Simulated assay, not measured.
Amino acid sequence: MRASFALFVMAASFLLASCTQEQQNKISRSVQNWTGTNGVLEIYSGDKLVRRFIHIDKMTTASATEGGSARPYRFGYGILDENLNMVTDPGEKKVYFEVSDYGTNYVFFESPR
């Protein structure tokens, strides 16, 4: 049993080492998408925080329906934190959101809580 596990670890290490950085990033993202992330998205207007979404599993880059190229926005689902206190309060619900790559100042990070 240990020998087969060691062989599996060695094979996986070899495969990862032979991948390009972009392929490694895709593998990492797919594992993270599978396991989920307790993400937070903050949207700023200048230096002022104007919106916060919490408990985001993932943000996805939109793809064109034909050709497969990326579109200039990202989308996801999260709790709209209306009072910006990083807690899901009564009445705050899960919503769909989109953020544009054009002129939108936003930060996405894993929740520290």
Rank of each mutant, 00 (worst) to 15 (best):
G78Q: 01
V95G: 01
Y102L: 07
N38Y: 15
I43D: 00
R71Q: 15
Y44S: 13
A64E: 10
F108H: 03
N85P: 05
N38Q: 12
T37Q: 12
M59F: 02
L16M: 09
G46Y: 09
S28D: 09
Q21P: 12
Q24Y: 02
S69N: 14
R2P: 00
Y96S: 01
D57P: 11
F97V: 00
E82M: 12
F14M: 10
G76M: 02
F53H: 03
E82N: 13
E110L: 14
V40H: 06
T20I: 05
Y106E: 00
L7D: 14
E98S: 08
D81L: 07
P72I: 07
I56A: 03
S4A: 11
S111N: 13
G76Y: 04
K93S: 06
A62V: 09
F109H: 12
T60L: 09
V95I: 12
A3M: 07
K26Y: 15
P90S: 09
F75P: 00
F108I: 06
N105D: 13
G91I: 15
D57T: 15
A11M: 07
A11G: 03
Y73E: 05
Y73I: 11
K94D: 02
S30K: 15
G46K: 11
L15C: 11
V95E: 04
G46T: 10
Y73F: 14
T60F: 07
H55E: 09
R52G: 08
G76H: 02
I54N: 00
F8P: 00
I27L: 02
Q23R: 12
Q32I: 15
Q23P: 10
R52Q: 11
F53N: 01
S28Q: 13
